[in-house]
Design a protein around this nucleic acid. Structure first.
Lengths: 206, 206
DNA sequence: GTCTATAATCCGATAGAC
DNA sequence: GTCTATCGGATTATAGAC
């Protein structure tokens, strides 16, 4: 066990304050990137929010790119996005619950939507993250739909993999429309509508 | 009829070359914004592509913002996006046809996806464009779905407005996934899958 | 219409004092 | 760890010669 590990484990010592500062910075960066995107948001913006100089910021994250990656990792922790297989309840309930959750944490949907599309542009630091995320989600959801199919709860003719891809796409698209017209678009309602089309009701025990 | 109109109508005179130059610039700007986004792409990039100095570019479009708006207007002309009601064949066929068309014109999907998400960030010049586009599309598709419902060709229980919103969302989301994984994602297949769920087959004439 | 020169900012990152 | 000073570069936009 190294000195660093001791400091962390005890939640005391020289690293306790530093770790807290890091989290504060990540929260500020989350806000800034959500509001202006990666290219549009500056280190100065983040530093101002924390009350630190721009150079001091680079003491915690050696480059803007590193800061972005840390923000994306933190997003996974907040939303549980990295481990979609860990959902305990059924696919439908967990998706609806997550959608509701994300909608009520300011900036979460903004950050995701903005950075996702931005990452498609040339040599964007977040590109790998989103590419892998989509692959992971499609696989996970496809397995969930396949399980439903095995229980006879998938509408006949529906391909689990196509349904997985479509569910992810629908979700993302609804979020974008919701950001531009929050009073007219209802993400959860849209997702429920899709599940109603694809997933058959649980057979009664009779 | 003004002098300018004469020049345009005759496709000659002092404005012919200028108009052609404008179109060349718009094509270059389309490429640049598609590849790097609005904030990530620079006027210098566009000027280099055309073989013009950056300042000469501003002779045709007085600001970067103006250039973007012109690119978006041109996009409407190319894709026919501005007048979704003008589609002559049925909703299903026209959507599939447009999806196929866009997929094969390089940069069209990139430009749309990148700028759309970028526009939700603070004070983005394209925000109004995309907000209005979504509103227009949702209304147009809702009317189309309602027509299908009147013909008994909409699955019972499906709300036309919700279906319209979902169709737009699904389409956009599929395009984003396609950009990141073109070999694994099939936009047209995804759209067909949705129509199969929502639209009932035409009743045989018997 | 096209150019050069340049204004006026803003950016990320480094060096080094304290 | 935090700061100031600063480098090196890119950006949009303007002024004005030709």
């Amino acid at each position: 066990m190294t000195t660093k590990d001791v400091g962390r484990a005890a939640r005391r010592g020289p690293y306790a304050k530093s770790e807290e500062r890091r989290r504060t910075i990540l929260d500020a960066a989350h806000e800034v990137f959500a509001a202006h995107g990666y290219r549009g948001g500056s280190l100065q913006d983040v530093a101002d929010k924390v009350g630190l100089s721009q150079t001091s910021l680079l003491h915690y994250f050696p480059s803007k790119r590193d800061l972005l990656m840390a923000v994306l990792e933190r997003r996974d922790e907040i939303t549980g996005d990295a481990f979609p297989d860990d959902m305990e309840d059924g696919l439908v309930d967990s998706v609806i619950r997550t959608a509701l959750f994300n909608e009520n944490i300011p900036g979460v949907v903004e950050l995701y939507s903005v950075l996702c599309a931005e990452s498609v542009t040339d040599s964007h630091p977040g590109r790998v993250y989103f590419t892998e995320r989509f692959e992971r989600l499609r696989k996970s959801y496809a397995r969930r739909f396949a399980e439903l199919a095995a229980q006879g709860r998938l509408r006949p003719g529906v391909d689990p993999e196509l349904a997985a891809m479509s569910l992810v796409a629908l979700w993302d698209g609804l979020q974008t429309q919701w950001l531009l017209a929050p009073d007219e678009v209802d993400v959860v309602k849209g997702l429920r509508g899709y599940f109603d089309l694809v997933v058959l009701p649980e057979p009664s025990p009779n």
